[in-house]
Write a protein that binds this DNA or RNA. Structure first.
Lengths: 240, 240
DNA sequence: GAAAACTTTCAGGCAGCGTGCAGGCAAGGG
DNA sequence: CCCTTGCCTGCACGCTGCCTGAAAGTTTTC
């Protein structure tokens, strides 16, 4: 019969997140999708609200917009840490990389993502930070499906033991497919998760990247990337 | 005598739906058939009515036309969620994919269906979203009848253990037959459920697709798809 | 600041699919 | 037994969705 039990959720460890963001649209986008990804999400829309929320709910990680109406993100963190909390942070920043303060963040185990970002980018960073800071129960950084291997830390990809070079978008797409192996993904879903949220292009770009991936990663038997005409794509082992 | 108790309804969990649609014809079509499919349906014909209806009846899922006279669908959702409701949504949208806002709909477990749609398409999406968002009591995604198996998530179909490839319409038709196993379905009924509601064609297309299905899926003993001359078709195990 | 790598769009081509038609066959009634 | 009616299915046509090469546009690298 069919393969097997669950393949339940693309879920991650059920960690508690605090998401701090003043733009209502982006906040909604983030909380909806992070919740769906299996996190326990609470929210705040200002710096001061964030500080007290962090005190009460003791999140495992904070997703924090740098630009806030009252305090800026760095102030928020300073206050939290004065209060004794060492919660790791993933910052959301605007693209003006001139901001020196961002540098040096990765030293403390924190990280940042620049707006606009894709959800795959953000969740990958969140997972990576949690992996680093949650010592003990090693969340593995290596995804494996059939003879396909992808290492989230080193960004290395192997098919049938052979190293394959992927561009950033190709990598993100493949990771998304692997995290959702055996689940059919529509082009709309792929666009929503792998491309930046402000992308205004059409579905065809997904077709293009599927084509690139096939050439680089799926050019041997058995084929793993399958098209379901009118429905979407799926990563799976061929019929029994 | 006869087979047995019930085989009651093609019922899904008796979930409460709120259907929001301003076109009276379509609203009637939807509420009638969703009710028949076993849902507990309430309706609204404007955005503001929808918001307050949602507050009062706390539906398990909202079917929401994007184009409404007062607020648009996105505003409705925004207001509902500001009110603390996390109800999942299936949007009904026009086909002109140019609508930027469509992006991001698949993120929180929500989904959308483009007009014109078939009732099978819509109910399948509703079931899928409920399955995903109702954690806990796993509604199975696999329909089984005799040695026929159909997986709604992966779109895989097996007959007697053998994998069978179906086109989208073939798949929808088979799903409809399986959801209504042991119930006689007229060609008109099939046309109404499996084909888009604006289809203006001939009954003969149902005959054609039944023929395709027989060839692909019913070419072994015992035959499961039966013709009732002058009445319709039925999926059932041969006489005792 | 030039070159290389990467992303995005465009367009041609192809295969799978949906639909209508028509000839043939089977069932049922007179 | 023949005629009628309803159903089955092969065929053909046109359309849609998908794939991919190439070019244009953008970002990164050196």
């Amino acid at each position: 019969m069919g393969s097997m039990a669950a393949q339940t959720q693309p879920k991650q460890s059920e960690a508690k997140l605090l998401v701090v963001e003043d733009d209502a649209n982006i906040l909604e986008l983030l909380s909806a999708s992070l919740r769906f990804a299996g996190f326990d999400v609470s929210t705040a829309t200002s710096g001061s609200a964030a500080v007290s929320a962090a005190k009460n709910t003791t999140p495992d990680l904070v997703v924090l917009d740098v630009m806030l109406p009252d305090l800026d993100g760095f102030e928020v963190i300073r206050l939290m840490r004065e209060g004794g909390q060492r919660t790791p942070v993933v910052f959301l920043t605007a693209r003006d990389g001139t901001d020196d303060k961002i540098r040096g963040l990765t030293l403390g185990g924190d990280d940042y993502v620049t707006k606009p970002f894709s959800l795959e980018e953000l969740t990958a960073r969140i997972r990576a930070v949690l992996r680093r800071t949650t010592q003990g129960d090693e969340e593995p950084s290596r995804l494996v499906f059939a003879d396909l291997e992808l290492d989230e830390e080193t960004h290395e990809v192997y098919r049938a033991g052979q190293r394959v070079q992927l561009s950033p978008t190709e990598f993100k797409l493949l990771r998304y497919l692997m995290l959702n192996a055996n689940r059919v993904l529509s082009k709309a879903q792929i666009l929503d998760h792998v491309w930046k949220y402000d992308f205004r292009g059409d579905d065809n770009i997904v077709e293009s990247y599927i084509s690139y991936l096939r050439r680089k990663v799926d050019n041997v038997q058995p084929r793993l990337i399958h098209t379901l005409r009118g429905v979407g794509y799926v990563l799976r082992k061929p019929a029994v």
